[in-house]
Amino acid sequence: MRRWEQYFTPQSLEEAIFLLDKYKGAGKIIGGGTDLIPQFRDNKEESKYLVDVTQIPEMKEISLLEDSFVIGGAVTHAQLAGSQDVYNYAQVLAEATVCVGSPQIRNMGTISGNIVNAQPAADGAIALTALDAQVHITSADGEKVVPITELYRGVGKSKVDSTIEVISKIEFKKIDKVQNVSSAFERLASRKALALPMVNVAVCLKTTGGQFDWARIAIGPVAQMPFRPFLIEDELRGMPTDEESIRIIAEEVSQLVQPRSSKLRGSADYRKEMVKVLVGRALMKAIARLGSEPY
């Protein structure tokens, strides 16, 4: 196992940025460490200075505003899975985060780590992708706000450079049934805890009078990053929210995706088929949540 040399626990975002800036690339942000420490163990990580952001009070808050959510960068999966607000107004995120690893992993692992680790099927990131989350990234150069879909460079490679940048918060519109907006998450794994997904799907959608207003569908792991079938999402607009349309859409999405074969997490053809099943189920579930039957 490789080891870091120093460990800092700043109490403010400014302090964290200061430390990163001071060590110029040799430092790195650590959240829960549930991805980072195993990477040290496997000799895949060699940062010398770790900057722990989990003691920064404002980064640990979940705030429900008038029509949006602001999630602190160091909020854990357990916080999200246990929040009544999140359950009521971003159910897809509650459902996704409760699937992560185990209680212990959820207690430690943070939502930002889930994004920056950049796995194409990271459960939290899949949900945030469907939520069209805007990610606030702070560095010595100031703050920028970037949509989550633009943060990926490849499998395991994030555009967030956590040697100099910190995700301070994540923002997205709340999912409000009153406005006919709803969401859902579906997942398939080898067992019911402590398992990475073979396929996971998150959807957010809005309907009007039995028709799709819009829908966002996020799927993993079928590409280098959480995948959104934008063209099909466009096509969905105006389609009836009935079983037949959903079947057609799910089929189309399944035709589109190019999952890889994994010796441990499923062959390509199976995953492709499961994308169809899970996209269909997620859409049906989200529509059912709007109170009326899905047709």
Binding site: R191, K192, A193, L194
Partner: peptide
Amino acid sequence: SENGQIIPKNLHEYPIPTAND
């Protein structure tokens, strides 16, 4: 295993039942 090399190398690549299973 493939050509003699085992594929699962840890306890999530080789799943055993958890309490939820």
